[in-house]
Design a protein around this nucleic acid. Sequence first.
DNA 1: GTCTATACTATGATAGAC
DNA 2: GTCTATCATAGTATAGAC
Lengths: 224, 224
Amino acid sequence: MQDRSLDRQPLLQPRPEGTDDSTLPPTPEATPTKRRILLAGLKLFAERGYHATSIRDIAAGAGVQSASLYSHFASKEAILAELVLIGHDEHHRDLLSALLGSGVEPRQQLVALVGAHVRGHCRYPTLAVVANHEMAQLSEEALAPAAAIRRHSEAILLELLTRGEQQGAFRLVQLDATRVAIATMGSSVATWYPTYRDLFTPDQLADAYATLALRMVGADEAVS
Amino acid sequence: MQDRSLDRQPLLQPRPEGTDDSTLPPTPEATPTKRRILLAGLKLFAERGYHATSIRDIAAGAGVQSASLYSHFASKEAILAELVLIGHDEHHRDLLSALLGSGVEPRQQLVALVGAHVRGHCRYPTLAVVANHEMAQLSEEALAPAAAIRRHSEAILLELLTRGEQQGAFRLVQLDATRVAIATMGSSVATWYPTYRDLFTPDQLADAYATLALRMVGADEAVS
DNA sequence: GTCTATACTATGATAGAC
DNA sequence: GTCTATCATAGTATAGAC
């Protein structure tokens, strides 16, 4: 005996709660229903994981019947693939715009890059969790567009650290270890920040992590 | 039409390959079959996730029929719960024994602690991935024993950083941010190290991360 | 584009012989 | 403790009316 009340609710009801529109960046291409599906999928994939979430769960969260999902997405995997792509795209834009606004000094650039990395993971933690953790559930083809963006994002930090060391601004312990350490401590913010919101504002945490990163690369601590 | 050949193979066949015994610490309590089930579950949960792995997949990996699993575990969740507990227990033991062998100086203690954290994640990356990522799929009751250990492990680094700052050995940017950053950059090793094995030995990576941690806490860089 | 209804497969778990 | 066989349910996806 299974409760299917969410599937049976009358039409024109208020939408089920819990799909906070602010958890996903703007999606101008998407119709309102498609966006509600993405929001519901985002919430459920993050909370339970991709395979623990059924197409009926997503439909209930979006306030439609499960069959209606297939007017907007070819499959359940396509919903995840779109979320993973949005997450990687948003993140990459954040990094680039931070770099572009940060001057030529490696130290300033590192502060800007780490700050954007952290702020992005504070702003869209649910999306980052899905993009990073549930990514593994996608087939190679479905993942490809996001994977390409990911490689670009990783290259940015690698280039910055390499240049900084060449210019004498950084004294690295070891390039690869430093790069991965800075990247992963920032990405992990998405996992823990929502439960520690009271401890820091996103800006405070971004500043703290930027200072930690400066120390890690052996740069002077003073930030403009 | 579904291929079930793995379920139909004759008895006394060689076990299906791919369950590397070294991926799991010793389990003296477990019978050989129980251990093979744990190994198969570990591999599959790490590769595909808990919900994407069926009881039949695990049985095939362990070289038994699916019904036989229930002579060793009460449920699929119980298999995951035991793996998550083993992972947390092993990790906690590593941290404690590192601390006990590291003298009284906060700097030495931090080097030992971060080194053990990293080495453990290099040694048992699959177990760490399951313990940290699939943990979320367990009910509160099933998770409780591991969660208790986890709180102890987290407290160790918190205490060390607090003491180090009080004694003037560390100059922290911010206690909580530093603690979480050091912890998460180390835990993430489990995710990426297996694909970057050629770049570092576990000891090299442990040394690099220990030095990074010393920089992060504002301690002198010289390590004995 | 949304609905109701349903096809088909896979799932976790149990029964009972050996 | 392991097997074969099976139950009951949940899963993704499709068909066809409106």
